[in-house]
Write a protein that binds this DNA or RNA. Structure first.
Lengths: 227, 227
DNA sequence: GCGTGCCTGTGATCGGGCTCACAGATTCAC
DNA sequence: GTGAATCTGTGAGCCCGATCACAGGCACGC
């Protein structure tokens, strides 16, 4: 991939806004651009944690990687960063990062990033913010998971997905994610069959529409009231 | 409280290791030292997020604050930081911070901290690390909560608590926390009665001993194998 | 374009954990 | 020291969601 393209990507990354153009150029020299196809793994448990990734296009799933009951910890979309725990220490990965939709991404060396932060506190603050937002999100997720019913878990999770990645139009919000019922179950801790029942019910009540390609929330307001 | 005492506390705080003595002194000028007693609230949902707290002594509980089914998000001990999401933005608190055991703590102004970070990237990195560790911990907690049985949830949660705050002796590990069965339930998403049944079983099997003051893990190794 | 997987839809059955209800045991406040 | 409040222990019954089993439907690869 042409170097100027890579630079373009870097310039448009939220995380790197804080950098000067000169700094961006230096980042550019030290990153690798990758294209990774659906189904491939970016890292596995036990791999060294020496890189951080910037996701340009596509979708990545972070999960525990078990065949069945593969707990999904996060779904990542263009503009997201992942593997950021490499910032902390040398301990190896303990999750699987798998490509769900063909991706283009940028690999950033750990040491390099630490060095950049020394020079640019603003960049450090961006990363702190990023982690903080993740933390906040994960907390609300814990709240969702404890004590809430299957209906509530799914309704609220759909709303979360919509808030992040949904496209609003005159018929509600479209979530352009190919997410099968099994995966949705792994995201909220329910069996695939249960997810089916719940979705069926939500469809009947006119709250959502589903296809294999995407999910449409017809009435986010009502969905929010589901218990 | 005497100023030199406050400085002493600051000097021994892990978070602030990165600062020079001069910087510590300037922090000292800008912090307030508080003593808060059991049962008091430090902040409530809706309160402004303009402070970060350093916990010197005692125990603080971060939770959703509902009367029943008060989801516990974190228990904090001496040396811990909390309220750190104030770093992100101005959005108000959305949890309750309640004192579980009498505390001494230090309140640090948000703007002040941001300013310090500008001057000391190392401090920023400390905070990033802190958030990263919280993030990692919360992820493993999500994994625990989804799909795992009541026995496993409790056994693993006890091990987590022991890892952080336990005191090892020749009869296992002592967790010096006054944690009743109801709260333990709120920590893992189980009814109080279920917690009782599980603890009863673990006691019978010689894995733990409980009193109202604390919990002793007689055999962490066996506890780890509980499914 | 056709077959072979993968995904969705649905029923029967089972069981873990919740709810409700109450009795005893501790601890705490005064 | 005594009463009130809180916490623990335990049983009966129920219900949500898991598991198992299988029938169609799509979609993608060759």
């Amino acid at each position: 991939m042409a170097a100027h393209t890579k630079l373009w990507y870097l310039q448009h990354f939220r995380l790197l806004e804080a950098l000067t153009d000169v700094q961006k150029r230096s980042v550019e020299k030290m990153t690798r651009m990758l294209e990774v196809k659906r189904g491939q793994r970016i890292y596995l448990p036990g791999d060294p944690s020496d890189q951080i990734f910037l996701l340009k296009t596509g979708v990545v799933k972070i999960s525990t990687g078990g065949a069945e009951q593969d707990t999904i910890l996060a779904l990542l979309y263009p503009g997201d960063i992942f593997g950021e725990l490499a910032m902390l220490d040398e301990s190896p990965r303990d999750h699987v990062a798998e490509v769900v939709e063909d991706t283009v991404l940028c690999a950033l060396n750990r040491d390099m990033l630490l060095q950049m932060i020394q020079q640019s506190p603003a960049l450090g603050y961006q990363i702190t913010k990023l982690m903080g937002l993740r933390l906040r999100r994960l907390r609300t997720r814990v709240e969702e998971l404890l004590f809430k019913s299957a209906h509530a878990r799914i309704a609220h999770t759909l709303l979360d997905l919509a808030a992040d990645y949904g496209v609003k139009d005159d018929d509600g919000v479209l979530i352009p994610i190919r997410l099968n019922q099994g995966d949705l179950g792994n995201l909220v801790g329910l069996a695939r069959e249960t997810v089916n029942i719940v979705l069926q019910d939500l469809k009947q009540r006119g709250l959502v529409e589903t296809s294999r390609q995407n999910i449409r929330l017809k009435s986010p307001e009502l969905l929010r009231t589901v218990v």
